[in-house]
Write a protein that binds this DNA or RNA. Structure first.
Length: 272
DNA sequence: AAATGCGTCAACCGCGATCAC
DNA sequence: CGTGATCGCGGTTGACGCATT
């Protein structure tokens, strides 16, 4: 499909193209030939300076379009395929902390792009929120994610015995931080992604991020899972009582909402 | 077989941040 | 310091394929 639009393409280019260039600018899906041209150029000259890159590579695309194509599709380290349960879990957790900071979340999932994660969130997670007839940002939905979906994902990850890939590792921990959801045992998912991993469940963050974290979470602890997932109480780890009370609240609501949920909706991990 | 609905995801857009001169 | 160029992010759109009617 040739999509050569006559209208101005404002994206990215602060230097207005001439009328002739403007007419020639392509939009829409990339062809194999264009992909090849872009890969070839970048392998020889490197990336960056996207507008001039687009011109010099002979591509009738905006620099912005080239950048997007490279980052989201052509880069050699782009991971493709289904989002694994480990990745789902990480996305849910990180989104609960950072909100729609897709690029920041993507940084924690090697090979995944912000676009992919954003699409995943919109198509899968928001769909389920819709089925539950609640807003994706509502406390109800967040609680369901926290106390039902994430534990189930953890269960499934634990049950399969090993990670689908070597990006994440998880381990069972005894005691320490976190009261454990439903007393089903404490599973700690630790980030690898080039960062250090600790046995006790804390993600060791880079200094800069740690500072930011201190601002975001009133607690000075960086114990990610024990604080924000396993224990709903921000006052500390291991408050079993508050875990159970919170869970039962969710459970009651859940029972009430059961009629609107299809049987297979909660086949978490297979199709979230 | 055709029409319609729906989910997915690549690509686009606007805008604020950052960089370079 | 001001200004234009470029980058990067998040929101949105639309094409495509599959399922259902």
């Amino acid at each position: 499909m040739e999509l050569v639009h006559g209208k101005p393409c404002s994206s990215g280019s602060a230097t207005p193209p001439s009328d002739q260039e403007d007419m020639d600018l392509r939009r829409g899906p990339w062809t194999m030939e264009e992909d090849f041209m872009l890969i070839n150029y970048i392998s020889n000259h490197g990336e960056g300076r996207w507008n001039s890159l687009a011109r010099q590579a002979g591509l009738k695309r905006t620099g912005k379009s080239c950048r997007l194509r490279w980052l989201n599709y052509l880069r050699p380290d782009v991971r493709r395929g289904n989002i694994t349960p480990e990745e789902q879990l990480l996305i849910l957790e990180l989104h609960s902390r950072w909100g729609n900071r897709w690029s920041k979340i993507a940084q924690q999932l090697p090979g995944r792009t912000d676009n992919e994660i954003k699409n995943y969130w919109r198509t899968r997670v928001q769909k389920h929120a819709k089925q539950l007839q609640c807003d994706v940002n509502s406390k109800q939905f967040k609680d369901v994610v926290k106390y039902i979906w994430m534990p189930r994902l953890l269960e499934r990850i634990h049950a399969t015995g090993s990670s689908h890939n070597n990006i994440y590792q998880y381990s069972s921990i005894n005691g320490g931080g976190g009261g454990g959801v439903l007393n089903q045992g404490n599973i700690n998912l630790s980030l690898i992604n080039g960062k250090e991993v600790e046995d006790k469940g804390s993600v060791v963050m880079e200094e800069e991020e740690e500072e930011e974290e201190k601002e975001m979470v009133s607690s000075s602890s960086s114990c990610l899972w024990s604080e924000s997932l396993l224990s709903p109480s921000s006052s500390g780890c291991g408050n079993d009582q508050s875990v159970l009370m919170d869970f039962h609240e969710v459970e009651r609501w859940w029972d009430g909402a059961g009629h609107m949920i299809s049987d297979n909706l909660w086949n978490v991990g297979h199709e979230f």
